[in-house]
């Protein structure tokens, strides 16, 4: 099985993720995949949920906090600016309060709360999470490629969806019960129709957003999750651990991609000692990878003679991943 075939045979898998330890090339793969899909004529968006994102550096263009930027026709890239998102969100809330109550200025007590809330440790993650919901619910693209943060955080992000979902469910239930009591009282006192509970409506909307996002992440039909690794012992140990964790969250793994494989033909040439050693070491771990993951290994990507930045290198990476431009 090859990477290109996975895409061809599963055209309904439109949400693409690369997971793995930091620094193995996930962002590069995300960018190259978006590039390849765009070449195939699909509208593809690659977006980063990492506050220390590298898409700008890979595309050599500052896209941070600028929304979806079209890099070449059909290829869009986006880096979420969480701080800005939080500021805009706070302003929306303030505006809404002023409008609803015809106030010139938000009361101090409420303003304090809005500011303190923004300083909460979980705020940044929540803001990014919410922006991702906006992006995927928007439905403007054929493919969504998530540039995930390193392992620990990817898991964190996945668990957040389910925690929020449960939280909202409970609050919604409480709110519904409250409404029932209110209606009972209204009926008993023969009052006119009650005002509709706007909070309940708001909660239901929040719930819709969260469940849409979390269902995508764990949907075998719609989502392809690829694990990235390199032929080194420590990475291998971590990958085994991580694969288990992901399985726990029921993230369907579509396969493994091995990165930074030293070109085997080098071995025949006259090469420095360090390189011969490294090739030798890699061989051992490549065999181990094959033994562990067998036909789930979809591609071996060679180490290039330089790092992957700029469209020319991205194109070369895409060819290495998906085969030559047919």
């Amino acid at each position: 099985m090859s990477l290109a075939r996975i895409f061809q045979e599963n055209p309904e898998r439109r949400y693409i993720m690369f997971g793995g330890k930091g620094g193995l090339g996930k962002t590069t793969f995300s960018a190259a995949t978006a590039y390849w899909l765009a070449q195939q004529g699909y509208r593809a968006l690659v977006f980063s949920v990492d506050p220390q994102a590298s898409l700008s550096d890979i595309f050599q263009q500052d896209i941070f906090g600028k929304g979806a930027v079209e890099i070449i026709p059909n290829l869009f890239a986006q880096e979420i600016d969480a701080d800005r998102r939080i500021r805009e969100y706070q302003d929306e809330i303030r505006q809404k309060i002023r409008d609803m109550y015809g106030l010139e200025k938000v009361p101090d007590e409420i303003e304090d709360y809005i500011q303190a809330a923004a300083a909460e440790p979980a705020m940044e993650e929540s803001a990014i999470f919410d922006q991702v919901v906006d992006i995927v619910v928007g439905g403007e693209y054929d493919y969504y490629i998530y540039d995930l943060v390193p392992l620990g955080h990817a898991l964190y992000y996945l668990s957040m969806a389910s925690v929020y979902d449960q939280w909202i469910q409970k609050i919604t239930k409480l709110r519904e019960e409250m409404e029932e009591y209110a209606q009972v009282a209204a009926l008993l006192q023969r009052e006119d129709e009650m005002e509709e509970d706007k909070i309940l409506a708001e909660l239901q909307d929040i719930r819709y957003r969260i469940s849409t996002s979390s269902s995508i992440l764990t949907d075998r039909e719609k989502t392809a999750f690829f694990f990235v690794l390199v032929p080194e012992e420590m990475v291998l140990v971590d990958t085994k651990k991580a694969a288990g964790l992901f399985a726990k969250f029921q993230v369907p793994i579509s396969g493994y991609i091995v990165n930074r494989v030293l070109p085997p033909e080098l071995e025949a040439q006259e090469i420095p000692e360090y390189l011969r050693h490294r090739i030798h070491m890699q061989k051992k771990y490549l065999a181990e990878i094959d033994r562990l993951f067998g036909n789930e290994v979809l591609a071996r990507i060679p180490e290039f003679e330089r790092d992957i930045t700029g469209l020319d290198m991205i194109q070369r990476m895409a060819e290495a991943m998906f085969g030559g431009a047919a």
Binding site: P51, A116, E120, P121
Partner: peptide, 24 residues
């Protein structure tokens, strides 16, 4: 330390926490 973003938050957290706790 954790990868950058994580570390940044880990250390930034002490400032953020102080502000938050003061308010409370």
């Amino acid at each position: 330390t954790a990868p950058t973003a994580n570390a940044r938050r880990l250390l930034g957290m002490s400032s953020v926490y102080s502000m938050w706790v003061n308010k409370m």
